[in-house]
């Protein structure tokens, strides 16, 4: 018996340039569709910051700044950083759930870069940070928050905050690749996020803190981003904090990105 049928159809897989970029964008679109199909996934970047703002402003505003309005001015640029940084946690949690499903088997069996599904998820989740920033500004505006610089600086603040959250989310992706289950990802992420976001001058000036905490605030990358965000939205020194923010963003991508991809490859 000799059956050696020739393939009738030509293989369509012709090489095209920028494969990794195109594949990552296609996969980013996938996660965007998934997010938009279940908008309740965006509660952590919409409702949660609103609750934080209300609680802090009316609980601490009088005590810390003398007036709720002055306090809101200081708080909102920092809450923006906290919210977006927390927002990246969902990327790790979702990926941890996702890689166990059959659809990731399919991605693994396709001739695409190993990092494409991870890059796609991280890019697609940029929408979460944009939603966070927009809803915080809208709510802050209603409460009386006003930008004290100019539009361009405000835009720069938003971009910087989003860039930083994007970079740090690679750390959550790494945790998502290493942890056994989504609950563990959340637990580990929370453990890291509390000192990162609350070990700052977000809710109270660092000057009132004990020495050890003040030295942590001084080196904490998130502090720099909050300082940059305040500087760009309210005026004051920006060059130093912005450079530090960019530096740390680069470090996070360059360290956690490759580690996450490696952990993903190993996990089969």
């Amino acid at each position: 018996m000799t059956i050696t049928a020739e393939r009738v159809l030509p293989a369509p897989v012709a090489p095209r340039p920028f494969g990794l970029v195109r594949h990552s964008l296609a996969l980013a679109r996938r996660s965007l569709i998934k997010t938009l199909r279940s908008p309740e996934q965006l509660l952590d970047v919409t409702l949660q910051p609103v609750v934080f703002v209300v609680v802090f402003v009316y609980l601490l505003g009088g005590a810390v700044s003398g007036s709720t309005h002055d306090y809101l001015q200081l708080l909102l640029p920092a809450i923006m950083v906290q919210t977006t940084v927390f927002g990246g946690m969902a990327t790790g949690v979702n990926l941890n759930t996702d890689i166990r499903k059959g659809v990731f088997d399919r991605f693994r069996s396709l001739p695409i870069g190993r990092s494409a599904p991870l890059i796609g998820s991280v890019l697609g989740d940029l929408i979460r940070y944009v939603v966070a920033v927009v809803s915080l500004f809208a709510f802050g505006y209603v409460l009386g928050f006003r930008v004290e610089t100019d539009l361009l600086s405000a835009l720069a603040a938003c971009l910087l905050v989003i860039l930083f959250a994007f970079s740090l989310s690679w750390a959550f992706v790494l945790v998502g690749m290493l942890a056994r289950e989504p609950g563990a990802v959340q637990g580990i992420a929370f453990l890291a996020l509390f000192p990162l976001t609350f070990g700052t001058s977000m809710i109270a000036p660092a000057a009132t803190m004990p020495d050890w905490l003040r030295s942590w605030v001084a080196v904490n990358p998130v502090s720099h981003v909050m300082d940059a965000s305040r500087g760009l939205l309210l005026g004051g020194p920006v060059a130093g904090p912005v450079l530090w923010s960019l530096f740390w963003s680069a470090v996070f991508v360059l360290v956690f990105g490759p580690l996450a991809v490696r952990a993903y490859r190993r996990r089969t």
């Binding site: 594949h23 996969l27 996938r30 569709i33 279940s38 659809v103 399919r106």
Partner: peptide, 27 residues
């Protein structure tokens, strides 16, 4: 590969599932 357990994305439509794979295959 058609795995034993469904490997389509439940949140995507039929068309979106297939178009995604086409794009990943460089179409």
């Amino acid at each position: 590969l058609t795995g034993q357990y469904a490997s389509v994305d439940e949140d995507l439509t039929g068309t979106q599932n297939l178009v995604l794979i086409g794009q990943l295959l460089n179409l």
